[in-house]
Design a protein around this nucleic acid. Structure first.
Ligand SMILES: [Zn+2]
Ligand SMILES: [Zn+2]
Ligand SMILES: [Zn+2]
Ligand SMILES: [Zn+2]
Lengths: 372, 372
DNA sequence: CCGTGTCCACAGTTCATTTTT
DNA sequence: CAAAAATGAACTGTGGACACG
């Protein structure tokens, strides 16, 4: 079974392997992944230089300049913002090789480009950078590998992309003069997310199962489910009860994640619900796929240590109607596993491309969600 | 073999690398290539500014002012003209960097430098420009990579330089008040050349081989050879027959190229033939070298998919006399390959420096040309 | 192989100085 | 002579190619 999907992968994806790789930032041809996403040579270098020199740019327009190949050098602010939005990981930009190293004199790369002292005009100049402080040593990089994300550090960006909030922490940078470093913000966001994934309601009584509408449930997650520890270990066969419980747990997790996204708070009340509703199925799907791929279990992996096996004979609930949820998930899991064999994590584009199908998935959930 | 030449290249050319670089325009010391040719800082900036502001200058004299370092600022018209003649590529001058940027509103960098409305005197003043229209967005750059030229966009200039017509399209600019932009003319010329290289006589019968003198053959190319598609792919070993056929095909190509050169038409009848005769061997040699370098085949590459290998054991026609043509070509090909390993295309100066040797080559062709 | 960092040719940018208007 | 434009030396930034693990 595993071999089959591997074969499929090498065949179906092998053909258009070279052709289908484009820079996630500018659309130029990419030679591979850089800092977590497919990127061209230019965006790779631009991102590394920006991180190294700790640049902060300012957009002269509305912060939504085009960054296609021909225009990518037009606005550095929007290019860097896009780099972050599509998931480029500043932590993946490795040590400057001369940091604490070298002799002792001011390291020659620390060209503390004296930030333009606004001699010209008051407002920000065309392509000048706003601030540029000499970067310090990467301080204790947070590298929680116990996060449910598939692979290494870069995958944290994917969670953002996945729920297609996409902007996630990168939105901190479109605001104008924040002199904080990108890496600091990244670390902060990563720590926040980690805290959310590790959050446990210790001594609360488990709420009674009940049916609420999405809106009410979203603002009262404590009525839906306790925050149990997330243990996607695939230790046992899932019962239908466990599948539904997992669904509720992920829903609560989802509310927690959204609550820390600055962009989400910028939406007004009604928009928030529209947004939250439209993205939840995608979030659930993505998370399940990540866990499944991580454990490599032959089925669908859930957060509570259970899994729903592919083999019909092993399934705990052959109930034809209720099993629909888990069966649909199997489809996506297999697809994802396929991708995992070629590239090593899921990207924004991968998620977006299945949005139509995802709708089907969402419908399936709507059927089962507010039920016993 | 390949390695050896690489070594040779880096050694022999590395030494005099710095010393031998002079500006192709004014002779000042050049720090490297700019817009396709070796150029000094001054000529680099002058060319960029001229293209950006879309300048058109007028010469107060005969259009042949000196442009040496000390006089280069005396006549802008002749300086720009020289820039184009030596092969500076206006397409290599990048857009403003912020041009098509932002959303759709008129980009604020389009500083429409109001063209001088002739307020002063009627005749052209010393160093005034004639016209200066605000440049528009680079519109659909023609980038035919299927041209036989070795590398990218800038190489188109080399073909001009090579056949040492040199002026090629740049001559359009010595005429006085053409309000067209340089880039437009460049694109037009490039498109014309591309058309010529792609031209194919579909349903004409292949003419009978015959012997004509140069003059007659030049004005009756249809008697020499059909325009077959140029396919320098080096797929098979060339027979002597194919080498001669290729020679005829390139001759026809040569007549096509000359026919679209304005400067060629300005010559009177006898001068045209003198000119055409003197440049043909150079043209043939350059083209063959380009194809050979492009395919990387170990021998001499021809337009019809055949090649003449270096290895004697592989050669199809060990005939000692007739093989002379191909063998001489081998010398040049090897030289060119050497150059291709260091710089990425052949320049005018490279071609001119071997003119003496080229004469020998030309003689070789004179022997073999009008023969069965 | 893949994804790091490194290198460097050649783009654009800046600005003191000169030239033109 | 002052304002405006051009010049060009010195600089930063870009990105293709390559080496390394
Ligand atoms: Zn890119
Ligand atoms: Zn912008
Ligand atoms: Zn010069
Ligand atoms: Zn002149």
């Amino acid at each position: 079974m595993r071999l089959m999907s591997k074969e499929l992968a090498s065949h179906s994806f092998g053909a258009n392997h070279k052709a289908s790789i484009f820079c996630a930032v500018c659309g130029d041809t990419a030679l591979g992944k850089h800092y977590g996403v497919n990127a061209c040579n230019g965006c790779k270098g631009f991102f590394r230089r920006s991180i190294w020199k700790n640049r902060t740019y300012a957009c002269r327009y509305m912060g939504n300049c085009g960054v296609a190949k021909e225009q990518r050098n037009a606005c550095r602010a929007c290019r860097l913002s896009t780099c972050l939005k599509v998931g480029m990981n500043p932590r993946a930009v490795q040590g400057d090789t001369m940091d604490t190293a070298s002799t002792s004199s001011a390291s020659p790369n620390m060209v503390s480009v004296e930030s333009h002292p606004y001699t010209k005009s008051e407002e920000v100049e065309c392509q000048t950078e706003i601030t540029s402080t000499s970067s310090s040593v990467p301080t204790s990089p947070i590298n929680r590998s116990d996060l449910p994300f598939a692979s290494s550090a870069s995958s944290i960006c994917s969670v953002s992309s996945c729920s297609s909030l996409s902007t996630v922490y990168s939105n901190c940078f479109t605001t104008y003069p924040p002199p904080n470093t990108i890496v600091q913000k990244y670390d902060h966001f990563l720590a926040t997310l980690t805290r959310i994934f590790e959050r446990v309601d210790e001594y609360s009584p488990e709420p009674q199962p009940n049916t609420y509408n999405f809106n009410y449930a979203f603002y009262n997650p404590h009525l839906v489910c306790n925050r149990t520890r997330l243990t996607p270990t695939a230790e046992r066969i899932a019962t239908l009860q466990e599948v539904l419980q997992d669904f509720r747990r992920v829903f609560v997790l989802y509310t927690d994640v959204l609550s820390v996204l600055p962009e989400f708070h910028r939406l007004d009340e009604s928009d928030r619900m529209v947004f939250a509703k439209s993205r939840f199925s995608s979030f659930y799907w993505w998370l399940t796929c990540c866990w499944t791929a991580k454990t490599g279990c032959p089925g669908v992996c859930y957060a509570n240590g259970a899994y729903h096996p592919i083999e019909k004979s092993l399934q705990a609930f052959p109930d034809v109607n209720a099993a629909r949820l888990a069966d649909i998930a199997l489809i996506f899991t297999s697809i994802t596993n396929l991708k995992y064999l070629t590239s090593d994590n899921i990207e924004l584009s991968d998620v977006l491309h299945v949005l139509q199908v995802d709708q089907l998935f969402s419908d399936a959930f709507e059927v089962h969600r507010p039920m016993e």
